[in-house]
Structures are given as C-alpha cells and as structure tokens.
Design a protein around this nucleic acid. Sequence first.
DNA 1: AAATCGTTCAACCGCGACACT
DNA 2: GAGTGTCGCGGTTGAACGATT
Length: 309
Amino acid sequence: MGRQPCCDIVGVKKVQWTPEEDIILVSYIQKHGPGNWRAIPTKTGLLRCSKSCRLRWTNYLRPGIKRGNFTENEEKMIIHPQALLGNRWAAIASYLPQRTDNDIKNYWNTHLKKKLKKLQGHEGYSRDGFSSSPSPSSSSAASYQISRDQWERKLQTDIRMAKKALSDAISPVKSSGSVEFEPFNGHTSYAKPSGYASSTENIAKLLKGWMRNPLKMADSADFSAEGTDPVKEEKNSEGFQSVLGFESLDSSISDISQSMSPEASLSQDESKPNVNAQTQLSLLEEWVFDEGKDYQLCDLALDENVNYF
DNA sequence: AAATCGTTCAACCGCGACACT
DNA sequence: GAGTGTCGCGGTTGAACGATT
C-alpha cells in the first residue's frame, strides 16, 4: 500500500545488537511484556525499528530458547513437519518450543537440506517422507495416490492440532498445567506456561557471557558462542563483574520471572504460542519416531470422541 | 603468515494478514 | 468498503569465523 518501511528512519541501526541494547530491551519487556513493538524504540530510546526489536526478542532473548546443536530427535521433528507443511517455519517451530523459527530455518538451509540430498542420492529418500519413491512421476499412480491421501490426512491432522494448540495457548485457564522442558543447562525444569522461568536463565547466561568479555563482545557481539565454554567462563566472569559492579545482575535478571505480570506472561504466550506441548509433542514424537504407526496418529486425531475445540 | 574459500547464523527486507478507524 | 497501522512470516543477505591452500 505504499507505506514507508519502518526501517527507513534515519539513524536506525542495522547492525548486530549490543549487550547494552539487549539489556534495555529485556528490561523494557520485563516491565511491559512483549508486544506493542512499535512503541519500544521511542519508549526505550533504542535506535532500532520495531521489527528489529521483535526479532531480537523472539529469536534471541525470548525465554526458553535452546541454543547449540540440534539433536537427532530435533532433526526428525523438523524433517517430518517440513515434508508435511513445506517451509512453514513458524508452524514447524511450534513443535519445538525451545527453538525459534529462524533457527530451524537456518538449520534446514545449512544442514538438513544437504543431509537429505545425500540421503536422497543414496537411498532415494523421498522429500514427502511417506513414499519411498522420489517423485510421483517415477512411481505408479496407485502408490502416489496412497501417499497423497496420507499426506492430506496428515495435513488435516496438523491443522487440527495447530488450532488446538492455539486455543490452548490463548486460554490461560485451560492451559494451567506445567510444561516440562529440558533446558539447555542440562537439568529438567518445570516452567510456567509462559516458559519464563527457564528463559530468565537464558538471558542471565547471555548477559553473563557479555560480562565475561565486554571488549571483544562490544566489537563483535558474538557472546552466544562464548558462553559455551565453561573454562573461559570461570576465568573471566569474576574480574569483570567486579569492575562493572554487576555481581547482582544474575539475580536481578532472574527476578524478571517473578516480577513479570500475568498480563505480560500471557502476551508472551500470544507472541509465540507455546503449544499444548505435552499433547502435541507426544503425538508428533510418536509419529516421528515410529513411522510405521503414522496412521494411528491420524486416526487418533480424527477420532470424533476427542473434542479439540 | 597470508590469502582464499566455504559455512554459519543473526539480522534485515518485503510482503501478506489482520485489526482498527 | 477503503485507508492506515502493526505484526508475523519466509526469503535473503552479509559479517564473522574456521578450514584449506
């Protein structure tokens, strides 16, 4: 409609986020909750456009994000929905609550595509994941029809599950059960529906990384990888903490979860529907890890006795 | 040690959907 | 219904980094 792009504003930064900016953004969201992105640059003084703020939050600072290598299981949880849904990364990401759509998209483009190509070369792996035939043209019409039917049923199932997840996510009363996550820090935690508990650790860790090596990070802002080295962590954290007086930062960041208003937690859910993880993941995992039984998943989802909405 | 190449991933861009007036 | 503002998604880019020559 001929609208000016928000990022055309003069003075808006288009480079890597600095830890200082992260802190400003996190503390603002701590107070007001995610959402109303348009207001954030003006209210916080950040020289960033609203989009950039939202992206930084959802892809990096958002609570509960797991970083680092994808497990084999996670790979499967990407490959199968991708075959089903195509490049609908946001939908695929809903199956992996700890991963962002951007992460999944990147991982697909850099790793999985190649991996599947290799597999395809070796064993004629089919992109659709349901038929061993590489393409309809090279298979019989009958087998193509079968896999297409299966595909359509799965698609229907997925749409139903997505709807259910969405309705659960926006219904705080219904989704009162805790969701069990296995966060990056190794121990299982029981997060609130908003997932904020585990994610404050995320942010704290992030900021810890910054504190460890401020000069390098101010330059490259590459503190995410830094945080993975526990030896460096040990070496650097103490000195810098005392220099900047950040000893209590960890705890103050941890307070985010406690001080977050219910509204904020709710809007957090809205910004990234946290799916009814237990139901959805178990169903999907069953399907993913036991391909021979995928018809059961369809049958279960299509069971009229189950009231999804 | 320097140059080149390849890979990764955070961030940006453009577009469509939706809400509001 | 048209116009406008905001948000979210998917594709793309480019800086940073590691591997290789």
